[in-house]
Design a protein around this nucleic acid. Structure first.
Lengths: 252, 252
DNA sequence: CGAAAAGTTGATTGTCTTCAAAACTGGTGG
DNA sequence: CCACCAGTTTTGAAGACAATCAACTTTTCG
């Protein structure tokens, strides 16, 4: 997009623009609120570098050494795990203000790939610095714990989806989750542009791409949404929500 | 089992036996290794209470206030989440040395139920004490991060299972994971007693209980395992493992 | 512009679910 | 001790949903 000479392999930040969390409009998403000036300054000091990631390139890959978490500034990522036999599963789609890389902590090694779905930019949060700083700033410590806990809870939700829902319910849940997060970032609550393919949506939802496509078409026929490729407009949120609260076998 | 007057509502520890992590044979599982005496003593001080949980009763439930993590000393638990419409999903089975309660951190409120599958006992780890102590003991801080990260990675594996595997593969993965964890605790690597029902296994694996039962029977017919109710004996680990590395459509 | 990638749609197949009945288990009380 | 009951498990037959296979269209991008 607005990229000039971008070398996606040279991670470190250029661009004279100050890397400062204190000025960042995403700071409510990345960091705890109510920090004093001193604490904020120390966080600014921790986050010294940014990194641009081109569409379809990886921020990190399975097997790579872990040394930092990443806060997404702009763009969208997918994370996906791969089994020995090659099948893979998209474990999430992440957008501005969200943190990726938590999987790498346990063994100092990433266990999934994080791939940009559009040209993106992240803030690099060196993990040893986070450790040091959170020992001194209690609010940061707790915030880190909350971020990890939130990820665990999110994954519980995905497990519920994968374990109990039918195709229509899965796609409805997916769309509703997506617009909800977009709305929280100031975008429309009814219109969205999907940054991922049918295949990727299917992988996330445990469905084949044909099923995703068919389900989109059915939703459109039923007047729930309008679909034109990756542009989706939600026409009836209520009925979309209603799809979620229906048991498979319930007849009332 | 060896329970006398047990009131499962009165959580706090009785039993004169000292609650001391420094003596606990699970300490390699719960806590980082290589702590000095002083650090170990402080951890002992943090873990002052134990709690017995009777079979089929909850350690905590969705919606309850969060204030502690729990390290399982003896017994087995299941954790499960429930959707608004009532369906639920078992998100994991936990055994000695494993930690439950991480879901509660993000909103100071538990978001799932933890239910004992047999009479069990846990160590209560008050979360504010963990926070304080991990600010002073770096190894503890890192250990906590690793535990949370490990849970995230484990859930990635479950998502892969739910999203991509067929019934036989799911059950094979489940059994292999179970014996592996039991073996790490000194039990047989071929014989195990399931503490959960077919229904609960099915909920965890995204299958109906009939499918679980049928798949057990098929494994038995094929000579992979012997099944008698909840007693399972693994007769051919290799072929069981081989089930996992087969793509659905692969013909070689 | 042309090739490759992504998406749609139809027909058919396969796997798991649903519904149903029967057998087994473990605990309770007569 | 045995009968009984609820909960659990097994097994069969039929049905539903998503996967697969295939053809075709549309879009994207070098």
């Amino acid at each position: 997009m607005n990229e000039t000479n971008d070398e996606s392999f040279a991670p470190l930040n250029r661009e004279g623009a100050k890397v400062a969390c204190s000025n960042c409009n995403l700071r409510e998403l990345c960091f705890p609120i109510g920090l004093n000036d001193d604490e904020m300054a120390r966080i600014d000091q921790m986050v010294t570098t940014r990194r641009k990631v081109r569409r379809k390139t990886a921020l990190f890959r399975n097997g790579e050494q872990f040394h930092a978490l990443y806060a997404i500034r702009t763009g969208v990522f997918k994370t996906c795990v791969t089994a020995e036999d090659g099948r893979d599963q998209v474990t999430g789609f992440q957008m501005a203000g969200e943190i990726v890389g938590l999987d790498g902590i346990v063994n100092d090694q990433h266990t999934c790939d994080a791939v940009a779905l559009e040209d993106s930019e992240v803030c690099v949060l060196p993990f040893d610095r986070i450790g040091e700083l959170s020992r001194e700033v209690g609010a940061l410590q707790h915030h880190l714990h909350r971020i990890m806990s939130r990820e665990i809870v999110r994954e519980h939700g995905v497990m519920l989806l994968l374990g109990t829902m039918r195709a229509e319910e899965r796609l409805a849940a997916f769309l509703l989750n997506l617009v909800q997060r977009l709305q929280a970032r100031g975008f429309s609550r009814s219109e969205l542009v999907l940054r991922m393919t049918r295949q990727e949506i299917g992988s996330y939802l445990g469905l084949k791409l044909e099923t995703v496509s068919r389900t989109f078409s059915r939703f459109a026929e039923d007047g729930l949404i309008e679909v034109q490729q990756r542009h989706v407009r939600i026409r009836d949120v209520e009925r979309l929500r209603a799809l979620l609260s229906q048991q498979p076998g319930s007849t009332f």
